[in-house]
Design a protein around this nucleic acid. Structure first.
Length: 369
DNA sequence: GACTTTCGTTTACAAAGAAC
DNA sequence: GTTCTTTGTAAACGAAAGTC
């Protein structure tokens, strides 16, 4: 994986990465990039060229300045509208155009013919829904295709749709195409020592009301946005339930308030606001750096993500305890599909193995007796 | 020849930093 | 503290090699 490096304070917005196989003047070749906001106000990264092609940070910075200047003066031309093309028409143009340059075009053409043409070919990308994609994946699974094949089929589909959208031949998909996983995802786990340091840092943190936000993330697995959106009316101390009114999935959901959450919320000060952790003048909080500061105080690993890492650590700890099955973990994490929860399965397997090993140890001890 | 895996490059998005 | 800009990096992309 390449690592982008800033070219230096002098060249704002210029970055490069070093090639692992290209060499220049006896050193790894550098590929320069510039970053700027485009006419659509979107942050973009544009390749400039390699040091071996005589590109320097200075030329990159010069090009960046030109880009910014032309955007400011608006050189975007309106494009004429035409009937959107269907996926079949798009694929034909794609395979005659940029697709033809791909050496493995036969692979792609076969993927199109075998897996995509029948289900999606006659539709234009704008009317395709997530359901169509789900059906495609289900169909491929029924035909016993591997995860890699399914991934490649979807990847080709996206390439063709993006080809059409880039050239204004058809609208893009109305939803974000979520790619299935090809290999295992990493799970963020805290060791018992790290949990201890986290608890100590939470107790030492000067602003305990702020520290409570981090407690909710670590002891309840709530997402950052859910914590900021938490209102007092969502908290039911009597039935020990927290209502998540605006979770990622859309529908309101309820989670049980465990003892740690109960303690935290019961002693949490009520500010003059409907929000439990209000921002300025009682309004909804925008952001907070408290998780970052506590992470530092607790000396958690550098790559541990301040908020979402706590959510994963919470789930991992539950899975590792062996006390919670995957169905209940899925409910607690409010995952819509078991696929998301599955990533914690191996932690549970390990704890089950440890448990069964205890039996083995007990039996062999009896033998000695 | 069809399908699957691998891996370097590019993009999207959240965190960090700067300016207000 | 809030908002805007830049940076860092995991996920996505794209090409090509490997396998059956």
């Amino acid at each position: 994986m390449p690592k982008f490096v800033t070219a230096g304070k002098k060249w704002v917005g210029v970055q490069y990465y070093e090639s692992t196989n290209r060499r220049h003047n006896g050193r790894p070749d550098r590929c320069y990039y510039i970053r700027y906001r485009n006419a659509q106000d979107k942050m973009v990264r544009e390749k400039i060229g390699w040091a071996s092609e005589k590109y320097t940070p200075q030329t990159a910075a010069h090009i960046r300045a030109e880009r910014i200047r032309s955007i400011r003066h608006g050189e975007d031309l309106p494009r004429k509208k035409e009937r959107p093309l269907t996926c079949n028409e798009l694929s034909e143009r794609y395979f005659k155009g940029p697709g033809a340059l791909i050496k493995s075009i036969r692979n792609d053409e076969n993927r199109w013919e075998n897996h995509l043409k029948i289900g999606l070919g006659s539709k234009e990308p704008g009317v395709i829904t997530q359901l169509d994609i789900d059906k495609l994946i289900k169909d491929l699974k029924n035909r016993e295709k591997s995860a890699g094949t399914i991934w490649n089929v979807l990847e080709l589909f996206r390439r063709i749709v993006n080809f059409g959208a880039d050239r204004n031949l058809s609208p893009p998909l109305s939803f974000k195409l979520k790619m299935p996983k090809r290999n295992s995802e990493k799970t963020e786990v805290l060791s018992p020592e790290e949990w201890e340091r986290l608890k100590a840092a939470l107790n030492e943190y000067p602003n305990q009301a702020s520290a409570n936000m981090v407690r909710i993330a670590a002891f309840g697995g709530l997402r950052k946005s859910e914590i900021f959106g938490l209102k007092w009316e969502d908290i039911d101390f009597l039935h020990r339930i927290i209502r998540i009114s605006n979770p990622k999935s859309g529908e309101p959901e309820k989670i049980p308030m465990n003892d740690l959450l109960y303690e935290t919320l019961k002693t949490h000060p009520k500010f003059d606001s409907e929000y439990v952790f209000p921002g300025r003048s009682g309004k909804k909080r925008g952001d907070s750096k408290v998780a970052q500061r506590i992470k530092k105080m607790a000396k958690l690993p550098d790559d541990f993500r301040p908020w979402h890492g706590l959510r994963h650590a919470y789930a991992s700890a539950l899975a590792e305890s062996g006390e919670v099955d995957l169905y209940h973990l899925m409910k607690l994490m409010r995952h819509r599909s078991p696929q998301m929860t599955q990533r914690y399965a191996h932690l549970r397997d390990k704890s089950l193995l440890d448990a069964s090993n205890k039996l083995g140890a007990m039996i062999s001890k009896k033998k000695e007796d």
